[in-house]
Nucleic acid binder design. Sequence first.
DNA 1: ATAATATTGACCACACTGGTCAAAGAGATT
DNA 2: AATCTCTTTGACCAGTGTGGTCAATATTAT
Lengths: 206, 206
Amino acid sequence: MFKSLNIDSEKEARIIRAATRVFAENGYEKASTNAIVKEAGISKGILFHYFNSKKELYVSLYEHLSDLFTEKIYERLNWNEHDIFVTIRSVTLIKFELFSVYPDLIDFLTSAFSEEAPEVKDEIEKFKTKMVESSFATLFSNIDTSKFKEGIDVNKSIQVIYWTFEGMANQQQQKAKSLSVDEINQEEVLAEIDAYIELLKISFYK
Amino acid sequence: MFKSLNIDSEKEARIIRAATRVFAENGYEKASTNAIVKEAGISKGILFHYFNSKKELYVSLYEHLSDLFTEKIYERLNWNEHDIFVTIRSVTLIKFELFSVYPDLIDFLTSAFSEEAPEVKDEIEKFKTKMVESSFATLFSNIDTSKFKEGIDVNKSIQVIYWTFEGMANQQQQKAKSLSVDEINQEEVLAEIDAYIELLKISFYK
DNA sequence: ATAATATTGACCACACTGGTCAAAGAGATT
DNA sequence: AATCTCTTTGACCAGTGTGGTCAATATTAT
């Protein structure tokens, strides 16, 4: 499944979205397959026909989504870019893009990262190393600090920038979940991102 | 209970901490009373002797903790203060203070705020109005904007300040949970808070 | 000793769990 | 229209965990 079995792709997306949401919200053990099939609008039988067990569903989903994530990251990110704002802007845009397809992708990957359930822990661990998390560290450690004003704490400035983007993402996510699925934003969101970048540049850059 | 019944206060604290954690992590419906009694180190019987039902436990806990929270806020906060940094510094210190006594108090109140379980929703709703949330709005709306540099977006600056403190709090909370309960920090944390305040003042204030 | 109170944990009916499988549905081929 | 193949259903299963009870014990006060 996800690649092997032939399946209506619209239904596949529904299953992925439902499973992602339920696992992200409850973690592996407390997530209910009944809740997943209900939310995906499919029968219990067909889920266990595609995936033979809850464990297989979880691991397949994890592999599928972490691949999708790293793929997007590598496709869109310039690893020689040393301006923090250019980098963080790209990362944020990728996040929004993924969010519009699978709203809970990031929540799922984050929770999977610290999943403790013995049944899946080892399987997840194997993929962790090749995850972008370590690459993210290099991405943000190669930052050109010479652009920052003299006399200010560069590391703390970077933290502030990071927290600002995190805050923006959370705020937007909150808004998107209460509103309907249609995409009011896009340009509006982009404008807001750039406004914050401008503010932070004026404040922290020479 | 919490005020009515006589009870060893050390045991009471254990029950509160356990219930707070479990409810904060799982929400009302998915929280297990078995998990609570196990974590508090008491028997099932005694919990239902103090509180007659899970609902009563939840509501009592909510009332107790939200009282404790508002009390601390009103006791420590100067409502005529218009400097955002003074205000947000106080709020942050209160949060840390409460955290050291009941680590999950804020998580619990936050989750209770959006609790959907029909059994408790109405009871929670009643207290919401008198909560500080609205007062918080006034607290941060009366901010002296004349101190900010000309030409920068004041509202966005305030958001950045807010997100920075939120980020700091999360980071510290994460650290505190992995480390032991002893309080390495106190002054170290305070120094960090003040360092960020200095950075933001230099950046945003005239 | 006795009475009163605080505390235990085995126990209950029941809801929900991951997983199964006979049967029904849908399409294609003859 | 009959047969065959593949997909999908949902009632059903044994097992686990639920909120809550209560006779029995431990503890304290008299």
